[in-house]
């Protein structure tokens, strides 16, 4: 699903070159739930922004869903972001001027989807996160946990192949964080591929696989399955 090989990201100024990622290798299979951890400044967010095609990289290769993305132009990258990737940000990143319904609709409009289909998908996604009754509310009228649920609904509405979550519970209290995490686990059980960047070792422990980044490199790659439900379901099937 997501494969980076010898990938590097260098930030250059006139006097210094800073390697945010160096000889970075990772392979995330379809249906995996991967937690990416590491200290501040280790390159976790850089990895996520490159994985989400929000940023370009300096060297190496990156295949997303079988597509080598390094040569894609801005339009093609936008199309892939829109159709294959769902984002969940730490700060929710809802558009404050739009109500819940319109916020969830944003990526669907950029896909050029018909109004009837958009409506169906939006209501399904809001039902999924338990916020259908708040469709006409504005973000400022919702709690942090509800806002993050709206952001998850927005990510889910487009049926992405890959969900990228950047500290999804970072701005939430424990109870809300638990609720969001349970929602992510549920989404994963339904077959979604999730890559989640987090500082929180407890959250990381709930993922299927942990990737640890230090100084822009993957230093520990354990494939110990933490979640058995999905595998069990696959086995049952």
């Amino acid at each position: 699903m997501l494969k980076m090989t010898h990938l590097s990201k260098v930030y250059r100024t006139e006097v210094v070159e800073t390697y945010a990622l160096r000889d970075f290798n990772i392979d995330v299979k379809e249906g995996e739930f991967v937690a990416v951890t590491g200290p501040s400044g280790s390159g976790k967010t850089t990895f996520l922004t490159i994985a989400g095609l929000l940023e370009t990289f300096t060297g190496g290769h990156y295949h997303l869903d079988g597509i080598e993305v390094s040569q894609l132009n801005d339009n093609a990258r936008s199309k892939i972001r829109n159709e294959k990737i769902g984002f969940i940000f730490q700060a929710f990143n809802l558009i404050p001027d739009l109500n819940v319904y319109d916020n969830v609709e944003v990526p669907l409009r950029y896909r050029g989807m018909k109004a009837a289909e958009r409506k169906q998908r939006i209501m399904d996604a809001l039902e999924r996160v338990g916020l259908a009754s708040r469709a006409k509310h504005y973000p400022a009228e919702l709690s942090g946990g509800q806002q993050q649920r709206v952001a998850i609904a927005r990510a889910l509405a487009g049926s992405p192949r890959l969900l990228l979550a950047d500290e999804p519970t970072g701005n939430l209290d424990t109870q809300m964080a638990r609720g969001v995490m349970e929602l992510l686990e549920e989404i994963h059980r339904e077959g979604a591929t999730i890559v989640m960047v987090t500082h929180d070792p407890e959250l990381a422990a709930r993922a299927q696989r942990n990737v640890h980044i230090i100084d822009g490199q993957v230093v520990d790659l354990s494939e110990e399955p933490r979640f058995h439900a999905h595998n069990a379901r696959v086995a049952d099937a």
């Binding site: 199309k79 558009i95 404050p96």
Partner: peptide, 16 residues
């Protein structure tokens, strides 16, 4: 600016 970035992240092209 941030809202524009979010729209871009969600799939908006420059022309959008």
């Amino acid at each position: 600016r941030r809202q524009i970035g979010v729209r871009r992240a969600l799939g908006a092209r420059q022309r959008d």
